[in-house]
Structure formats: C-alpha cells, structure tokens
Design a protein around this nucleic acid. Sequence first.
DNA 1: GTTGCTTAACTAATGGTATTAGTTTAAACT
DNA 2: AGTTTAAACTAATACCATTAGTTAAGCAAC
Lengths: 189, 189
Amino acid sequence: MSPRVGLDRDKIVIEAAQIADEYGMEGVTLAALAARLGVRPPSLYNHINGQAELRSLLAVYGLKQLYEAMSSASRGLSGSEAVLAMGKGYAEFAKKHPGLYEMTLEAPDANNAELNEEAGYVLKLIISVLAPYKLSDEGELHAVRGLRSILHGFASLEQKGGFGIPLDVSVSLSATIHAFLAGIDRFRE
Amino acid sequence: MSPRVGLDRDKIVIEAAQIADEYGMEGVTLAALAARLGVRPPSLYNHINGQAELRSLLAVYGLKQLYEAMSSASRGLSGSEAVLAMGKGYAEFAKKHPGLYEMTLEAPDANNAELNEEAGYVLKLIISVLAPYKLSDEGELHAVRGLRSILHGFASLEQKGGFGIPLDVSVSLSATIHAFLAGIDRFRE
DNA sequence: GTTGCTTAACTAATGGTATTAGTTTAAACT
DNA sequence: AGTTTAAACTAATACCATTAGTTAAGCAAC
C-alpha cells in the first residue's frame, strides 16, 4: 500500500515526543507511534531498536531541550537572578513538555554515553549558576543536589497535580529558591 | 484444582506492594500478582476492579505508611529538629519502599475520597511541623509546597539514580532543609 | 536503460498483557 | 440439609511488543 514514507530516527523521536506530551509517557506505544507515522509497527524496527532504545533517545532529546531552556533563561544573568531564572526555565519546560520531561528522568543507564553526556551538561549548568556563592568543594555537591531536588520536586509535583490549591506555583518556586539561597551558608563549611 | 485460597483486598494489596518494591511500579501486573497469590488473573476481579483500582489502593496504602513514617520520626520533636526528622523519615520510607512510594504519586484522582483524605493527612503533618515558624497564611502554603518539593525531589532523584556520586544523600538533604529553614523569613510576608 | 544491491516497508506469527463473560463449586447461612 | 453467595475457574477477546521472513523501492554502477 504505502511506498516508502521516508522515516528516520529524528522524525520518529519528534513524533514520539509529541505523543508523550499529549498523552503522557505511557502513551508512547510503538503501535500509536507507527499509526501516527503512517506505518506498521514492525517498520519502526528498521530505524530504532525497540521501545527501550526509543525511550533512551527521548531522554536524550528531552535533556537537550531542558538544557536549552535552562541555559537561555539564565543567560546574561548572575547571582540569585540567574538561579531564579534558571529555575523558572526548568519549571516552564517541565510544564510545557510534561511527557518529555518525564522521559529525561528515565534510568541514567550507566552504559548510555550520550545520555550521561547530556545529563552532565545540565549538571554543569547548575554548578555554574551556583559558582558565585563560593561554596566549599563538598558543599557545592550538596547544594547542587538541593537545588536540583527543589526544581525537580516542584516540576514533578505540579505535573502529578499534587498542588491542588489555586495558588501561583511560580511564586512558590521563587520563594523557595530565595529561601534556599538565603541559607546557602550551610554549604560553605 | 485449587479450592478457595482465601484472598481478600488486603492480601492482594500487600502482595502487590511487595512486587512494587521488588520490581518497581511497572512490575505490578495482574498476571505476576495472581501468580504469586496462587491464583489465575481473572480471579483477582472478584476482589478488585482491575489494575486501575489496584493502583489507587496501593496509593492509599503507601500514603498511610508514608504518613506513619513521617509522623513517628518527628513525634516529640519541635522546630528544626522536627522538620529534619520528618524529612529523614520521608526519605527513609521512599528508599525502603521505592515502588510503594512511586505509587503514592499516582494521579490524586479528584474523585477518590480516601486517597484525598490520606494525602490531606500528610499535608497537615507538614503544615504542623512548620507551624512554629509563624508564617503568614499565604506564606505557609508556599512554604509547604517548598518543603514538599525538597522532600519529593530528593526521594525521586535518589530513586532514579540521579545522584551518581558516592556522597551521603542524607547529609545533602539535611543541609538543604537547614538552608531552607534559614531563609524561611521569605514566607512571612 | 538495465542490473543488482541495500534497506524501508510489509505480512504473518508468537507471546505477553488486561479484561469480560459465563461456569463451577466451595463455603456460609438459613 | 438445602439454598444462596461469591470465590475460584476456563474460554475468549483485544491490545501490546517483538521476531522472522518477504516484497519492492530507490540508488549506484555499468
């Protein structure tokens, strides 16, 4: 019926990302993906190695976009303004791309080099934005974990609908980051 | 072949929780559950209304245990000691029961009264532990979100293996909570 | 242009999943 | 003891991912 559709990994990943954002991570089935691409499920195996690989590709794709969102939001700023802007960029990305964001949290897969690389970039960005605070070596590691947890915690809870009350979440996030920074002395020792 | 096994909702939920903790949330299939209970999959429908309801039951079951863990950890303490202990209790539960913890985050399901009730108890516990800080009405709401995000962020990232480096996570969590409390003035306005 | 290689699509088949319908029979209750 | 209730079952359906093997499109070389 269908001659060659002209599929490739990029088109597959992009379409899969849209499904993820529309229907959630569990909506990304090879059947649904194939249907949207006008192809039968087995045909996808000519380009990807099954669902597991697709998820890895989506994680990498998502991390790249997350990095870009955080990076562009904080570019040119410094100090608490940079931290705050980066946090908002993070939250906005997670809200705008819920499925893709979920994908970025999939098993870091010690063997997947590209995924580790992208995750490393995000980490370095967080480190760089905390650099002005002159933390101790070990303190910096703890602080990065703290900030990451705040960002992910907000993004994740908002996504799961955990914040029932109609109260601006971005205000909560800003205040929390400010509080965290106000007490960042804790990470100097 | 098998006479009555003597199944009931409790036994099903307990066994499902064990599967969740051993193999993760996605390992909780009715097929695996039935096999472990010595029964055929359709038999489970005599007690539960399918996978969806099972997940709701697990969420409630997990929230009860989470509440107990947080509550007993902070009992008798006050101020920052209480917040810290509660946080450690939260983290310990999530680490000890990864699958069940994941389940507690499933869609709050506005229609599920029992789930909302349990979630409400956890929320009230967090509120009570922040009460001594005399926050403003609105500030309290933001602060609760912040603390919850920190707790969930740490639990979730640790679970996903996001903290690669071999550095005590409980130290990171303590320091982050301390920093948050040090800057809690932000929530007084 | 024809030939031939590569590979993107296909069909068919397998095995896993949840779920429904309908049946048997064990256990509980009069 | 007889009746009812419900806990187990078998059988069937409809998804899902995946593998094996097949067809045919498109491109490169002659």
